[in-house]
């Protein structure tokens, strides 16, 4: 297990360096003035331009610029936002809110997705299964922001059950609807994945053997079918964190949540390029770290990984 963890961290280092380099390269090494390009149609004040040039060391060779940026990342210096505030300051207030929202979303998509996927897999070809498939396909087809508008309109505006926007401090009850919106697409994927995985595992030899041993149907399903079906679902959760981040930008924008996603959303809308770039870089880093954690969870679930040399 320790060896596995060590190896995963080791593998992550070049990926981390490569990915941050890619982002940095895309922003600063492409033709044109990167600082001006960040502002799009708007004209920034010369002071901000000068500060950005200094911050990104644009006077130095490209590779030095990147190394200085990378060094900054390790000291939690993520750059400066459009308004001149350090990104790390903005993060400190925004991250906890997004974390809370993301945890709610993951809890929802995992619990509901696995439960519905399990029932659909056990009743493959029946009405419940068919409806679960149709609903999941629909959820994947409709963009998150449309689901967001519609749910916001129906539950907040029409029915008045919840607030249309999230209030100060992001109380939990305000976050429930945004979390459902955020989780919707991933929920659909988890339903489909669990269903396939469960129906595959139902046909596995070890499940037949477990039945032959005299175990009850319920125990066979819980201990052998479900447990084994969770392995691909956990792997999916790893890559899904990336989708959740994109979703967070959209969802937090719609519900006016002042989290990481909301900040990026506002920055994009206002054309504040530096803020966007800095925040997205941080999101990529979070994505990688989260993936590492999911890999550990995966190892806990699958002894073949855990004991691999």
């Amino acid at each position: 297990m320790a060896w596995y963890f060590f190896r995963r961290v080791l593998q992550m280092i070049p990926v981390f360096i490569g990915a941050t380099f890619l982002i940095y390269f895309m922003v600063f090494a492409l033709p044109g003035d990167p600082v001006l390009a960040m502002f799009g149609d708007k004209t920034p004040s010369p002071a901000i331009v000068a500060e950005l040039r200094a911050q990104y060391n644009l006077d130095k060779p490209f590779i030095v610029q990147y190394l200085l940026y990378l060094g900054g990342l390790f000291t939690f210096d993520f750059g400066t936002s459009f308004s001149g505030r350090p990104v790390s300051d903005l993060l400190a207030s925004a991250f906890p809110i997004t974390f809370k929202l993301a945890m709610l979303a993951i809890a929802f998509e995992a619990i509901a997705g696995i439960a519905i996927g399990l029932f659909a897999g056990l009743r493959k070809g029946k009405l419940f299964d068919a409806s679960a498939l149709v609903v999941s396909l629909l959820l994947i087809s409709v963009p998150t922001f449309v689901i967001g508008f519609v749910l916001q309109y129906v539950f907040a505006v029409q029915l008045g059950w919840v607030n249309a926007t999230v209030g100060q401090g992001a109380p939990l009850k305000d976050l429930i609807l945004p979390a459902i919106v955020l989780a919707s697409v991933s929920f659909a994927y988890i339903v489909r994945l669990t269903r396939t995985s469960v129906s595959d595992n139902l046909g596995a030899d070890y499940v037949r053997t477990a039945t032959a041993k005299g175990l009850s149907r319920g125990r066979v399903v819980r201990v052998h079918v479900l447990r084994n079906s969770l392995i691909p679902v956990v792997t999916f959760l790893g890559t899904d964190i990336g989708a959740l981040m994109v979703g967070a930008i959209v969802t937090e924008g719609i519900f006016n949540i002042k989290g990481v996603g909301g900040t990026v959303y506002q920055a994009i809308i206002r054309g504040e390029g530096p803020t966007v770039v800095s925040f997205v870089a941080v999101m990529v880093i979070i994505f990688m770290v989260a993936n590492l954690l999911v890999d550990l969870l995966y190892a806990l679930l699958d002894p073949r990984i855990r004991y691999a040399k």
Binding site: G18, G242, V276, F287
Partner: peptide, 17 residues
């Protein structure tokens, strides 16, 4: 390395520039 960057996040950055 490319896989480590979620598609739409990467696209947001590049489209921005």
């Amino acid at each position: 390395m490319f896989f480590a960057i979620p598609v739409v996040l990467g696209a947001i950055v590049l489209m921005q520039t």
